[in-house]
Structures are given as structure tokens and as C-alpha cells.
Design a binder for these strands. Structure first.
Lengths: 239, 239
DNA sequence: CTCCAATGGACTAGTTTCAGTCCATGGCGT
DNA sequence: ACGCCATGGACTGAAACTAGTCCATTGGAG
């Protein structure tokens, strides 16, 4: 519970800006990478394209890219068919220092437990076109072939794919942001190799429920699935 | 369904900025007013305070306030114990022109149906302190005493109060934003005086379920309650 | 081999936003 | 009456951000 009283205006009236445009741009890009949107080896859209879609000037975007490049996440190649490439090191951001903020943890876990099962439920209710079904299946297959290093990103990717099936941009964004926040938290705890096999079984079951339109089941399965990570994080905080 | 394909980067990589700081500030303030955070007659926090909490310079905040003042939403009084007061006209933004975007409608209704019932559920599960229970009850009483003009804002206020009980800032913000978006949509349709009595019964039942900790019931009741407005909006879009 | 086109790189002028400072107003306590 | 002081009002110089333009690089098409 926040220490503020209830009905307090600033619980609703949040900051319009959370820092430099430049910093926020970095954060957006990092989030996209963390979440597996741009797998290592692939390249980002062109600067002009990215800048336009991020609603930021190319100059500012380039500042952000320069920072990420210096931090070793990106490599830039010039010329025709050049571009900005994601390096392997972008994925393996192992065990960064810094303690976990209990408030942040509570907030993320609560919100996640709200939207992800709901996303699965809505997705299962939707009338999915073939392309959607294929995309989900592809993400699942991809995830099941993942190695230790690529697992987290592909996991996020899969969960976002589920959200995409809902066709609700707000819901997609919410899931993506929550995934990024979760990943940031997971980066702060020593990596006990999770039970990937069990997770993969759950992913498969969730996919199945969604594809056959079993909304209630999809919801329940997703909720169970999330509980694993949640318990891990909570446990580490207390320990 | 969005026209873009699935797995498209820009479904996740959203704009960092959605306009001038100044415009966004206006939007934030308007949202707060629409949502009943500042009832007519009351005054806003001091400029210095507001600016700090909105993460915006006082100069920019003042630009926004000037705009809202010119639009007839606010009145300013100087001197000690002066301040910026919300005018009555701020509430009665009846029937603005402009068509409803079907995509926006779909998105809002989907998202709302996801988070609000969930918020009610989480609130019911929480171990609520006396102050929380009182606040919810107060919002309910306030709402039930509302006139035609003040109803929408107090309704929003009540729903946000439910979200506040969850103690999750992200969830609170999400509910508040969704409420503001819904209100904006409702402003665009002719006001058929909704069945306030029925709504009030629902509000009372929801409050009851939350206060006695019946999570499943709270969820169901909230979902039913939302369906009313959803049907109204959908119906108007098709008609 | 030459040119094309798409990409990153670099600069400039103009606009917006900011932090800080000082002024003006006017209830309230003394 | 008087002065205090929290409030809105106004200004300035610096920093951030932007739109636009042109340059540099380089793989592929002709």
C-alpha cells in the first residue's frame, strides 16, 4: 500500500515527462531489445523510420543510439544496406547490481497478474485469422528451441504475441511494458536456471487453449504460469 | 484487428512523445478534471506544486493553465490563499462534435473490460485498512447523491477509488486513463439519461462485495456493470 | 565499371522547455 | 493598521529538442 492517503490527486496526476527525451528514447529502445523485439544479429529499422515512429527528431534518436552503441549493445554499418545491428551482448545482461525496490516488485507482479491472464482470455475469445494463429505458433516453436541465453527474450516475445492476438493496442503496450519491467527485475537476481521444461509445457498448453478458443482455460493456465516467476521474485526479495 | 501484420515492431515501439509538453500537460489536466479529481468549486494545487508533480517547468504549466482558463474551465485568484479554481462549466462538456473512431472504441472497451473487473477482484482480496474502506464508502455515498451534471465525474471517481484499493500505482493510472478515454467517448454521443438507479444498485453491490472480501463476486459484478456502458457505446456506433 | 539509392553522419537555424529570480497581490495574524 | 508570506505573474539566459539540409559510405543494378 502506498504511504499516501486515498483519493490523493497525485495518485492519478502522474508526471508528463519522466526525464530527457533522449533518456526516454534510450529506455524505449532498451525495452524493445529486452523484450526480444530485435533479436541479436538483426538490424533496427532505419534511423529516419525509427525517429518518425518514436515521435522524436533524428538528432535525438541518434544521441540515444550513440549511447547504446557505446554501451556495446549495437553496431553500426554505413552504406547502402547498412544499418544498426543488435549485438549478442545485448541479450546477456547478466546479474546487474542494484537492489530490488519492493514497491516496484509488488506493482509489477500485481499488474502482470491482471493483464496477462486477461490477454490470454481475450485472445482465446477472439476470432483469429490464420496469420495470427501462425504467428503465435511460430513464437512458441521459436521459444522451445531457445538456449539459456535467448530464453528470456523469446519468452517475452511469446507473451507479447498472445497480447497481439487481442488486437488492442493499449493491451499490447501494457503487456510489453510489464514484460520489460519484469525482465529488468529478473536481471537483478542471480540466475537460477528455471525449470525450462515445465515452462515450455505451460506455454504449449496456453497456446493450445487459445487456438481452440477455450478462454477460461487460457486464463487459468496463464495465471498459473505467471505464478512461477512471481514466486521466484518474491522469494528472492524476502531471502 | 489492426491492419498491420503480427509481430510488427511498431506495435510495441510506441511514440516517446505525443506532442508538445505543453499540449500533453493540458491533456493531463483535462483528464484529471474529466475524471472528477477536481470537482467544480475546488482549487488546484499551487502552480509550483503541480509543476513539480507533473515533471514540467512552471512556465510550461502556466501556458497550459492559461489555455484552460481561456477555454473557461478555470478561474484564477491572486494573493495569499488564492489559487486556480475549477469552474462549473468544466463539468458540463455536453455533446462535443466529432465522430467516434471505431478502433479507439474497441480498444478502450477491451482494455476497460480487462482492468476494471480485475481491479475490483484484487481490491476485494486485499487486506484493507479502515481508511481505505471509508474512502470507498465515501465515494459511493457521494456518487449516489449526484445530480445529472455531476454524475459522470463522480462515477469515474468511484471507479478510481476501487483501483486505489489495490495499492498498485500502475493499475490506478491505467484505470484513471481508461476512464478519461471513456468519458471523452461518452461526450460524443447524445446523452440518453442512463438508468442511474440501476447503476447505483450495481455500485452498491460492488462496494459490498469488495468490503466483505468476495473477490469472485466483485469481479463479476464489475464486469456486468461495465457492460451497460459498453453496450450503449457500441449501439451508438452501429446506429 | 559506373551510377543509383538507401543508409548513417554532420551541421545550422529556429523553437520549445527549463531553472532561477524577482515582482504583485491580498487574506490573516499580530 | 501593519507586515507576513503563500500564492499567481513576468522575465531572462541557458539547455534541449526539432526540422531541414547536405555530405559520406557502400552494396547492388545496369
Amino acid at each position: 500500500m502506498t504511504s499516501e492517503g486515498f483519493g490523493h490527486p497525485y495518485a492519478v496526476l502522474r508526471p508528463v515527462r519522466s526525464g530527457n527525451t533522449f533518456e526516454e528514447t534510450i529506455e524505449h529502445l532498451l525495452q524493445a531489445i529486452r523484450v526480444g523485439l530485435f533479436p541479436p544479429g538483426q538490424k533496427l529499422p532505419s534511423e529516419r523510420d525509427l525517429a518518425a515512429h518514436l515521435g522524436v527528431s533524428r538528432a535525438t534518436l541518434r544521441e540515444a543510439l550513440a549511447e547504446l552503441q557505446q554501451a556495446g549493445y549495437l553496431e553500426v554499418r554505413r552504406g547502402r544496406y547498412g544499418g544498426t545491428y543488435i549485438l549478442e551482448s545485448a541479450a546477456s545482461t547478466g546479474a546487474e547490481e542494484g537492489r530490488i525496490d519492493p514497491e516496484e516488485l509488488r506493482d509489477v507482479l500485481t499488474f502482470r497478474a491482471v493483464i496477462e491472464p486477461a490477454a490470454a482470455e481475450v485472445a482465446a475469445q477472439a476470432d483469429l485469422p490464420a496469420s495470427a494463429r501462425q504467428h503465435l505458433q511460430a513464437c512458441l516453436t521459436d521459444l522451445q528451441a531457445a538456449e539459456q541465453g535467448s530464453y528470456r527474450a523469446r519468452d517475452a516475445r511469446f507473451h507479447i504475441a498472445v497480447a497481439e492476438l487481442t488486437g488492442s493496442p493499449t493491451l499490447i503496450t501494457a503487456v510489453a511494458e510489464t514484460r520489460a519491467r519484469t525482465s529488468a527485475l529478473l536481471d537483478k537476481i542471480p540466475l537460477l536456471p528455471a525449470n525450462l521444461e515445465h515452462s515450455n509445457q505451460q506455454h504449449e498448453a496456453i497456446t493450445g487453449a487459445i487456438l481452440r478458443g477455450d478462454a477460461a482455460q487460457a486464463r487459468t493456465l496463464m495465471a498459473d504460469h505467471l505464478e512461477g516467476t512471481a514466486a521466484l521474485l518474491r522469494g528472492f526479495l524476502e531471502g
